[in-house]
Nucleic acid binder design. Structure first.
Lengths: 189, 189
DNA sequence: GTAAAACGATAACAATTGTTAAGATCGTTA
DNA sequence: TAACGATCTTAACAATTGTTATCGTTTTAC
């Protein structure tokens, strides 16, 4: 009896169902709004109804984008929420977004007392664990150009919605290098 | 009320306590023994009492080391165990090792029925999740030389126990490049 | 004990990426 | 509307890494 890992669509629907079930507050934010600062303790988890956000950090004056999040995703500085440590990351909206808000206290209460929520959240952590292990592997195995090709194939929309220089640091390269790779790949096709 | 993330020593002791509690079978394996092949479905989780192992994959004829595991660690192709899919990885002992064996069926039974085991395992997944997210970040943020310096500082023993060319692919570089970096860093000190 | 394999250092050259700077385009804001 | 900032491309050069090969040493296997 194996664990069936949900696909993103199913997980997204489940998330929205839970947001309604727990009657989470809905908020709207403009593009480029910072929802969490580095050094701050994260007190909220967001469920994205519409829009997109990014988690990023400042490393010696350079912005490093850790991850992008779109509709149907849970987003937070999870490490900060779970361990109660100050966040290493900034959380920022890239587009005008509509978000359900789950306060940390409510989250912890649900996690402990609500079996359906606990099952869903534990499964979410498992999914993220598998996602991270695969993403990490792509850094061990692939050159930047291959990481770009993979991203373009699996998530082409991202290039329509997210500035390219953010994508570059997500791929572990500079914006200049990504521009060169795109030029090269476009010629190859 | 935050989740307290256990340090490795505490987690290791807990693991050995559980191994005794569930009276897991103990096996000994020589160095360089393959415990799981690529394409095989993982049917066992191992708890390392003594020794060390590595998880690696073959990518276009090149060996990529995904992770090393030492005393007090749980080791398996977890993704394969959890999803019942064929493993992308090989699991191999690097030294003569002594391992507790937890069969998949027993694991699933404990996970569902034994609260202490479930709490421990869920916590383990959370820890691994945080480990992976930090490790991934080091690929986005640091150059290979910095990843080497960090590893040397945090885990110097690894260079005494693990062949250097395995460490190289774990750091995402070639063995030649790691040798050059070591030479350069040794001169800098 | 000896042959074979594994391991690590190094050299030479190719390929890729980083850095810095300049310029063009587009959208936002006063 | 005009000024500004954000975004992307490109160029030139520096720095780093990959590739291939050789060599000496150590370890393993028969």
């Amino acid at each position: 009896m194996a664990i069936a890992i949900q696909d993103d669509k199913t997980a997204g629907k489940m998330m929205l169902y839970l947001a309604e079930k727990y009657q989470l507050e809905l908020i709207s934010v403009d593009a480029r709004v910072t929802l969490l600062e580095e050094g701050e303790k994260a007190r909220r988890i967001y469920f994205i109804k519409e829009g997109c956000l990014r988690l990023w950090m400042n490393s010696n004056g350079k912005e490093i984008t850790n991850q992008f999040f779109f509709e149907g995703s849970l987003v937070a500085s999870l490490e900060s929420v779970l361990t109660n440590q100050p966040s290493d990351f900034y959380l920022e909206s890239l587009e005008k977004s509509v978000l359900y808000v789950l306060e940390k206290e409510r989250f912890e209460q649900l996690w402990e007392e609500d079996a359906e929520f606990k099952a869903w959240f534990d499964h979410y952590i498992l999914k993220r664990f598998i996602y991270y292990s695969k993403h990490l592997l792509s850094f061990l195995r692939d050159k930047p150009e291959e990481r770009y090709r993979n991203l373009l194939q699996k998530n082409p929309d991202i290039f329509q919605r997210v500035p390219q220089h953010y994508i570059a640091t997500y791929l572990g390269i500079t914006a200049v290098s990504l521009s060169r790779i795109r030029n090269k790949v476009a010629k190859t096709k």
